[in-house]
Each structure stands twice: as structure tokens, then as C-alpha cells.
Amino acid sequence: MSVLRHAARVAWKDLRIELRSKEIVYTMAFFGALIVVVYSFAFPVKPDLVRAAVPGMLWVAIAFAGTVGLGRAFDRERENDTMRALLLAPIPRLAVFLGKAAAISLLVLLVALVCAPLLALLLDVDLFAMPAELLLLLVLGAIGFANVGSVFAATLLKVRSRDVLLPVILYPILIPLFVAGTSATEAMIAVKPDLDKLWYWIGFLGIYDAVFLVLSMWVFEALVIE
């Protein structure tokens, strides 16, 4: 599978650059942490209230910090017009998309893994009652976000108002993902965890990811070619 091999090459390149500069990871994680802290001031910290609010806080933090990181990750490809080099390379353009999306999924997941313990710590909510399920949920969320996000961030690369248009385009499409994530988290941390509900939403997220991944793979080239 030359597509996967080249996708891995593109993703590894992104991760290596990030490992060297650590700019996106540090700023994204700090931004995510800030959102969490701001939230803990915005809402009264009462046990029952917090339990209801924490899932939303987690996913909004992921959405905001994720958008910032996504924008920056594609800004990097714009600086020396390297996106043009990637699209010119004799590899399937699908590989470019898959590589970028994979690298960004990892970054988003990392931010989620910073925000979740912080929320649990600051607001005293047992987010990690079901660690494996939570991880699965965050992985699915990160993949869905990175997948839709990469398609549009890549298409927006040459647009002057890309910074404002990115969320304008992304959030209406991603609302089901965030609601699913929030609802699943809610089911997980409820006083009596609702397993049926949890797995319904995890399944929902899985199907969402699969459908949009197929759609993205199908239209990516048509979108990035002017």
C-alpha cells in the first residue's frame, strides 16, 4: 500500500517538525488548560452542577484548542509554500490528506489528554472511572475532528480570511461530534454510569468518523486543486 507508506511519511515529517519546535503542542496544551481554568471560574463549583458541566467543558476545550492547533499546523505548510510541494509530489493526494489528518489527530488527542486530568483535578470529578472507554472516546473524537478539519484547513490555505472562516465552516459540521462526545462523557461520569448510552454515543462517533473519512477521502483532491 503505497498510499499508507506515503501518508506515514507525511505524518512523520509533521511530527518530527513538531518534536523539534514543540510550538503547537505547548501552545495548544496551555491554551486548553487556560480554557479549563477560565471555565472553573465561570461556573460555580458545586458537586452536582460540576458533574453536568464538565463533559461540555472538556469538549469545548478540545474544539477551541484543536482549532488553534489545526490552523497553525497548516500555517506551517503555507510558510514556504510546502503544501504546493506536497501536492506536486508523485504520490496519491489521498496520502497527503491521510498524513496530515493522522498527525493532527495525535496533536488533538494530546491536548485532550492534558485537559481531561486538569478538569478532573480542578473540579474534583472522577473523569477516569472508565479509563479505557474515555481513551477510546477521545481517540474517536480526535480522529473525527482532525479528519474534517484537515480537509477544510487545507482548502482554506490560500484564503485571506482563513482564521475566521475555519471555525465558521468546521463547527456546524462538527456539532454532532461534540454533542456525541459530551453525551458519552456525561454517561461515563454519571453517579450511576449509563453504559447503554455510553456505547450508543461511542458507536455514533465511530460511524460519524467512518462516513466523514470516506467523504473526505473522496473530495479532498477536488477541494485542494484550485
Binding site: I17, E79, N80, T82, R84, A89
Partner: peptide
Amino acid sequence: RRQIGMLAHSSLCYAEL
């Protein structure tokens, strides 16, 4: 694409590498 070589005013190279 295999046969195309592109040289532009930007370097098409990653600044961090």
C-alpha cells in the same frame, strides 16, 4: 507529477528541517 520540478520564490522546503 513525477516529471515536474518546481522552483518558486518560496523555497518549498521546511524551515524546521
